[in-house]
Each structure stands twice: as structure tokens, then as C-alpha cells.
Amino acid sequence: MKAFNFYSPRTLTEALDLLDKCKSRATVIAGGTDVVIELTERQRDTDCVININKIDELRYCKVEDGKVKIGALTTFTDLENNSYIRENVKGLHSCAAHVGSPQIRNLGTIGGNVVNCSVAGDSPTTFMALDATVVLQSKTGKREMKLTDFYANCKKTQIADNELMTEIYFDAPAKEVATATMKLGKRKALVIVVVGLAVLIEKDDAGNISRAQVVIGGVSPKPARLPKVEEYLVGKPVSKCTFAPCADLLSDAVREMIPTRASMPYKKEGVKGVSDKTFGQILADFGLQEGGR
């Protein structure tokens, strides 16, 4: 590891001050599961490492004003163990529960996962399906943007050198909302996503789909909403029959997204299985039918 100075602020204000001073030469470390590997492999030149992991005010998961608010330092384990999330946001619960291994879930934070924005990142796919908003804060102020915008038109994210992500929030799912995620990988633990799918479905009183948010991960560098699938779903009844064609729609989407990639032939087939299972979970969440795994 190359040399650097190390700071461990206890409050957000302190951290933002430090960040403002060091700017682009600073490296923020939260859980460290992405960043320490880069440091060990001497891939990162940095003068100062700012450990935000001791800022307890950024570790929370609460429902407030109809929103589910998650502090950036919340770990996957925190989310997995949160009873509200487990009961009401099944997609996010399942996403957190399937990250890496127990050790990684204990260390890895939501902030790190969202800001690091790797192809292999699982929670961005789910948060995008939840149409989440990120909160960014710097010494000079606070701004918010939709996750889709946070990732749009840039190499990684819209975060500035002097900003920290402090929170991500989304609308608390009403009774009529079901969520599900699934990731296809190559084994049963420590899985890097091959194809990930996150879905939010809202139904109206008549049992028809009033809102559909469908996001695919692991295929393009950043997760992608799939408007064609969403448009197809809206207005149709929540049923196995409605969901069945999604497999082919998703398969087409994969083919369009990565027409020449060597992994395309498998992903376009595998996504069909993922689709059936994910929508199976949606049905189960609505209490309509047993879901997949």
C-alpha cells in the first residue's frame, strides 16, 4: 500500500470540512470492501484517506414522511435484519441478503455500493426499481437527485469531489406494491451477478398494474430501466399470464443492449429464468401464488 495520511472524523460536519480541504486527493472509505482492495493493489494514489465509518449519524434505516430513508453507512446486514424492510420491501431485503458473504454484508455499505457503481453492484439495480433518490452533501450545501440522474451522462456518478452521499430514500411501498429482485450468478454464495433483475409492481383496486418499474443489472455498466417491459405491463392484470411474456421481452432487451458481447447468448437465455422467478416472487408477495426462490 502506498503512503497516505488517515483521518477518522466523528461527525458529518468534520468529514465535509476535511473533504473540502483534500478534494480530489482524498479517498473516502466507508466499509472498505471496494476501496481497500484498490489501495492494497497500489492502484490508487491518494494523500489522505477519510474514514467515514465512525460517523454514526449516517447509519440508520427509518420510515419518515412516507419515505424509507437509509443512511449511507447502513450495511447490507443492517438492511437484511431490518424487519420493516423484510416485511415491506422484499426486493431490497432479498438484494441485501444475497450480497457477497456474511463478512462482506457486515462491512459493505449502501453508500459505498451506490457510489462505487460497479457493474457487479447489486443494490443500484434494486434502488433504481424503487425509483430512489440520493442525497449528496458538501460543506456548502445539500442536493438531491434521482438515482437514474445520479448515474446518467457520466462515467460513474454525478458526485463531486467535495461531496458525500449521506442518504438514499424512496417512497414507502403501499399495500398495493410488491417488489422483488433476483440475481443469477455462478454459485450459491459469493456470487458476482451475471444477470440481475429488480421489479416493482403497483396494482390498482381492480387488480390491474398501475405502475411497473423494471430494472436490469449486470448487463450494461450501470443498471437500466426497461421502458418497453414497463409499458407492456401497465394496465394488465396482475397474473402469471401477464408476466409470462416478460421473459421474452427481457431476452430481447439483453440482445439489444449487448448485441456483440460474448456473454450475450447465455445472458439472453438466462434472463428468461430470472424473469420467471422474479415475477413469481411478485405474485407471491401479492399473495397470489407461490414464488420461486
Binding site: 488517515f6 477518522s8 472509505i29 481497500v36 456474511p102 462482506i104 462491512l107
Partner: peptide, 11 residues
């Protein structure tokens, strides 16, 4: 349980 290869000493 955490993997100590992914944490900096100061943490």
C-alpha cells in the same frame, strides 16, 4: 465477523 484484509488499521 469481517474480513480483516478489507479494513484499514485505523478503522
Amino acid at each position: 465477523p469481517v474480513t480483516s484484509c478489507l479494513m484499514l488499521a485505523g478503522q
